[in-house]
Computed example of a mutant assay.
Amino acid sequence: MGKVICAGLGPGNPDLMSVKSDRTIRGAKHLAYFRKKGRKGQARTIVADMLRDDVIEYPMEYPVTTELHFGSDEYKALMVAFYAEWADRLETLARDNDVVVLCEGDPFFYGSFMHLHTRLQGRAEVEVLPAIPGMVGCWNALDTPFTWGDDVLSVLMATLPEDDLITHMQRADALVIMKTGRNLPRVRRALAATGRLDDAWLVEKGTMPGQRIAKLADTADDDCPYFAIVLVHGQGRRPEAAE
Rank of each mutant, 00 (worst) to 15 (best):
M157L: 12
E61D: 15
P133K: 04
A7K: 06
L78T: 08
I213T: 10
P11Q: 09
V187N: 02
A77F: 04
F227T: 07
S112V: 02
L16G: 00
R119S: 12
Q211K: 10
S21C: 01
L175D: 05
M135V: 13
D73I: 09
E240G: 08
D143F: 00
G236N: 03
D54H: 09
I25K: 00
D96A: 05
M169C: 02
Y110C: 12
T167P: 06
V100H: 04
T194G: 06
V136G: 00
N140G: 14
F82N: 14
A81P: 11
R186H: 03
D163F: 07
V55C: 03
G149A: 10
T194D: 04
V126R: 09
D222E: 07
A242Q: 09
R186L: 02
T66M: 12
H168L: 11
Y226I: 04
R39I: 10
D173T: 00
R52K: 09
E204W: 12
R26P: 00
G27H: 02
L153K: 00
L68K: 12
V19Y: 08
R188T: 07
N183Q: 06
R44L: 11
L153D: 00
G181Y: 09
M178D: 05
G8E: 01
Y110F: 15
M79H: 07
V176F: 06
T180G: 10
L165T: 00
V100P: 03
P107W: 13
A217K: 05
